[in-house]
């Protein structure tokens, strides 16, 4: 079974790298067939990753969501699904060239650290209720990732138009209005998921407050999550009120995701005992 895990994992990584490479080739050749090939490779990669998670689940008899490799694989799968839905129309397919290279980079990093995690038993979540919490969180991150990369495309398009450079890219990237609508749509879908994640986490923390101590609400994870929730809420409110739009909004959405990821990485490194969702073997 472990061989199947390795096989599907590295096949998935290869498919994601292929998808990113072909999406970049499109920027050079403008041949629409490369984008179709890219979409197919992405779908194949996601299927491989799903199989890998299934093999892990079958091996250890509980959901594999707690190691860094498992989380990033789930992130890649959910991001791929969201990407394939976002680029389903011909004029948005060029966005694959923005979405896929960073995603492939994340997969590559995952491949470099996976040898530590793949043979290891993933720690079991304390309750299946937390699996929903983690799944929603990763999905929200995937949507915020897409919003962030859509913002990058917006900033690229806006900079070209502002500087009067009517390059090939300007004609192929969707219009500013379409990009603005797409990034707001992604935030609009991602935000409720993020809030639901937060709510589920708070409920769990409240139930287990004896374990977490009286100041559980002041933990870095809770505080950072609330800060990020407030950040996206303010962005959304300002956008709807017509006070924030265009490049400034795109910059904030772009940065927002990286702040979110940075907080996740910092918390993972700290791995604060007592604020984790898994059963500590000790």
């Amino acid at each position: 079974m472990l061989a199947a895990v390795y096989l599907t994992f590295y096949a998935g990584i290869a498919a994601y790298l292929c998808a990113a490479a072909t999406a970049l080739v499109y920027l050079r050749t403008a041949d629409a067939r490369t984008l179709r090939a890219s979409s197919r490779a992405l779908l194949a990669g996601a299927a491989m990753f799903v199989a890998m998670l299934a093999f892990r689940w079958a091996t250890w008899q509980h959901l594999p969501l707690t190691t860094m490799t498992d989380s990033l694989v789930l992130f890649a799968v959910l991001a791929a699904m969201a990407i394939l839905v976002t680029v389903r129309t011909p004029n948005t397919q060029v966005l694959l060239s923005f979405y896929l290279p960073p995603l492939a980079l994340i997969c590559l990093v995952n491949a470099l650290v996976a040898h530590r995690f793949l043979p290891m038993e993933p720690r079991a979540l304390r309750s299946s209720f937390l699996a929903v919490h983690v799944g929603l969180a990763v999905f929200a991150y995937a949507l915020f990732y897409l919003a962030s990369m859509t913002s990058a495309a917006y900033l690229c398009q806006a900079a070209h138009l502002k500087n009067h450079r009517m390059s090939w890219l300007v004609r192929h990237i969707p219009s500013l209005a379409d990009l603005d609508a797409a990034l707001i749509r992604l935030v609009r879908y991602g935000y409720p998921l993020f809030m639901a994640t937060l709510a589920l986490g708070l409920v769990w923390a409240f139930i287990d407050r004896d374990l977490l101590g009286p100041f559980w609400w002041a933990s870095p994870k809770v505080v950072l999550s609330c800060v990020m929730a407030a950040f996206y809420a303010i962005l959304f409110h300002l956008r709807c009120a017509g006070r924030l739009r265009g490049p400034k909004l795109a910059e904030l959405v772009f940065i927002g995701f990286f702040v979110l990821i940075a907080s996740y990485v910092v918390l993972s490194i700290l791995d604060l005992r007592g604020y984790s969702f898994w059963n500590d073997p000790s």
């Binding site: 398009q157 300007v170 969707p174 219009s175 209005a177 379409d178």
Partner: peptide, 13 residues
């Protein structure tokens, strides 16, 4: 026509 192209790059439809 460049002006129309620009407008479509900004507003789409």
């Amino acid at each position: 026509s460049v002006a129309v192209d620009l407008a479509e790059s900004i507003f789409s439809a």
